[in-house]
Design a binder for these strands. Structure first.
Lengths: 226, 226
DNA sequence: GTCTATAATGGGATAGAC
DNA sequence: GTCTATCCCATTATAGAC
């Protein structure tokens, strides 16, 4: 049986290996994101990640020479995925109400489909973004500022009620992300093992209602809105 | 000079020491909460906490025999402080709008004054509440359920618009807590070193506006609210 | 209660054979 | 690229003198 291998062509080998390497790195990062989310950066051992990914610790370190490199790759992937879904949502001349509804839906979808991604990112920010602050500054902040400008344009065009656009966006983020980050606590309150699709639908309705109600108030009248 | 000490009374010594011990433990926990918030559970070394608290590592372990014991004490203190501020807010027969405004204000105040407390708690929940889930179940969930019942009573009494009370509460939590947990990212967006009192005032206005607008919608009319 | 000394473990990282 | 073996360091925790 070994004789069949004698004249194997070595030509595509290199390319195949490169492709495999990219794929393997992506698989390792996909496993790592869960471990980092559950255990934190220091609580994560590369041995655990390697085991989950089905290779040896030393072999993992061939692909990611240091733990930090793996962590940065994980955060890079998280940000790539998130930006892919969020970019250009506020582009075009759609109705503000539809844009906001779509925005909330997209963020909730991310929380439901990629809870570990959201959690790793959250833990990094909560602990001061010491390792990833520069990337957030370079990649996230500009996008956020653009979204805020869109909101403010809507306000100056009289298409939505006057409201602090920055804090409105903070509020939308907070409400949608919490369904990934704090789902453990929510599940306890709702008395389930984990959140269901219906919970996310209920959440969407409440959040969209709140956001649309906030931008619909015609004016700060009556001295009622504080 | 040493002679003056010869006849020192030993009577109150025991009590003094007990009081000092309580005080010292509280001081250690107060330092620990910052370190746990910045470094995570595994990232925190008791040596660092001891240094911040001004005693030796071994001495700290006289008061807290294990790292877990210190961590649990920190979370206990966080919860005590939080429950102290939050309890009985929804009691009495005040106007729903005033109760909600006060609730939001109290939560934001906690985020501003005890950001580390909020962050330690958040990290524990994000990583699945593996160590503190039972306490959350016993001490937090009942209080939350009570708040939800108050909301639902308001709805059935026609004092506020019909809305999913559970998710409304989740939304309020998320929006207010995020000003502690994600302040690092917010500061980057706002281009400051840290959030200011004015930022919290702006946040309060937006959050209160959103909540009050959401409970003011008379009915789900027009097929507009989805 | 506070100190010195030390055990014991785990984990990140490197070296080198195959 | 994958394996075995190993180094080195940080850290939790304990023992025991004072």
């Amino acid at each position: 049986m070994p004789t069949a291998k004698l004249n194997a062509e070595p030509a595509p080998k290199i390319k195949r290996r490169v492709l495999n390497r990219d794929k393997l790195e992506a698989e390792i990062a996909a496993e790592a994101v869960r471990v980092f989310a559950e255990c934190g950066y220091e609580g994560t051992s590369i041995a655990t990640v390697a085991e989950n990914a089905g290779l040896s610790k030393q072999n993992l370190m061939y692909y990611f020479p240091t733990k930090q490199a793996l962590y940065q790759r994980v955060l890079d992937d998280v940000l790539d995925e998130w930006l892919d879904r969020m970019e250009n949502l506020a582009a075009g001349d759609q109705e503000p109400r539809e844009v906001l509804r779509t925005y909330v839906q997209a963020k909730l979808k991310f929380s439901r489909e990629q809870p570990w991604a959201s959690r790793v990112y959250a833990m990094e920010v909560i602990s001061g973004a010491q390792l990833y602050g520069a990337q957030i500054q370079n990649r996230v902040v500009p996008l956020v500022r653009k979204d805020i400008e869109v909101f403010e344009k809507w306000i100056s065009d009289g298409r939505i009620a006057p409201i602090n656009a920055t804090h409105l966006l903070f509020a939308i983020w907070a409400m949608t992300q919490s369904y990934a980050d704090f789902s453990a606590q929510m599940a306890l309150v709702l008395n389930r093992k984990q959140l269901t699709k219906k919970d996310f639908d209920d959440a969407e309705k409440v959040i969209v209602d709140m956001v649309l109600a906030a931008i619909s108030v015609p004016q700060p009248v009556c001295g009622d809105a504080r």
